[in-house]
């Protein structure tokens, strides 16, 4: 579903991401973790077609993001950490807009279900400026899920959500993966990553330092055996720092 090879992104002399490769199959959830400034958002933005990689290839559902970006974008949903919404479209209008862009023919059926699921029904005529941070995040999530994407890219998706919203979002992510979607989840909430993700990609200073299932990563670093994911994460990122 998602195939990334030698992904590199340069900003002038600064290398934000250096030669990262990974795959996410249907039904898998990849946890992308790393300290602040590690290159997570840059990687996700490249995957979402928002920025162009300096080198490397990205394939989404078999479509190359460079040569066949429209088909690739049709297959994915990118949900950023900061909800980007149009100031002058109401909640319902956002969803109708997305439905038209992605050709969702049964929008009339899906729309009320999604609004109910994300508790936005009562706010469907509200403009983003009238919504709380959490509500705006829910709207961004609804926009991402409306067209039933086969690839989900989530950048800190729980930011601003209330406890109920967090639980529902966790269930949604797991449910989407169970139905065959490939999911990439970037988060600093390591308990969430541990609970949901089938694979991990640990990055630091733009380079990957570990990739695989948690068991595979611990196998490669036997001294981390029996430790929590938080300890593993801190050890991996500090090991690299020490090595660097």
């Amino acid at each position: 579903m998602i195939s990334v090879r030698e992904l590199t992104k340069l900003y002038g002399d600064f290398t934000a991401v250096r030669s990262i490769s990974f795959d996410v199959a249907a039904g898998e959830i990849l946890g992308l973790v790393g300290p602040n400034g590690a290159g997570k958002t840059t990687t996700l933005r490249c995957l979402g077609g928002i920025i162009q990689p300096s080198a490397g290839t990205i394939a989404i559902a078999g479509h190359d993001m460079r040569t066949d970006s429209i088909a690739a974008k049709h297959a994915l949903a990118f949900i950023p950490d900061e909800p980007h919404l149009f100031d002058y479209l109401s909640v319902e209008e956002h969803l109708r807009f997305i439905a038209r862009l992605y050709g969702v023919v049964d929008v009339e059926t899906r729309l009320p279900v999604l609004l109910d699921e994300l508790e936005l029904s009562e706010k469907k005529r509200a403009l983003p400026g009238e919504l709380s941070r959490g509500m705006r995040q829910k709207l961004a999530i609804a926009c991402g899920l409306l067209h039933d994407p086969s690839v989900l890219i989530l950048d800190e998706p729980l930011t601003g959500l209330d406890p109920g919203g967090i639980r529902r979002m966790r269930q949604t992510i797991a449910g989407r993966a169970a139905n065959g979607s490939a999911v990439i989840l970037s988060s600093h909430l390591l308990n969430l990553v541990e609970e949901l993700c089938t694979k991990l990609l640990v990055v630091r200073q733009g380079e990957h330092v570990a990739y695989g299932t948690i068991d595979e990563i611990i196998q490669a670093h036997p001294h981390l055996l029996g430790q929590s994911l938080e300890d593993v994460f801190l050890a991996l990122t500090s090991e690299t720092k020490a090595a660097g």
Binding site: D87, Y88, L89, S90, E92, E93, R96, F97, A99, R100, L101, Y102, G103, V104, V105, V107, E108, R125, A126, L127, G129
Partner: peptide, 16 residues
């Protein structure tokens, strides 16, 4: 900003 009290219709199919 004016409230979104009324809207314009948009068909769900057609040129994006």
């Amino acid at each position: 900003p004016r409230p979104a009290s009324s809207t314009l219709r948009l068909a769900s199919v057609g040129h994006p």
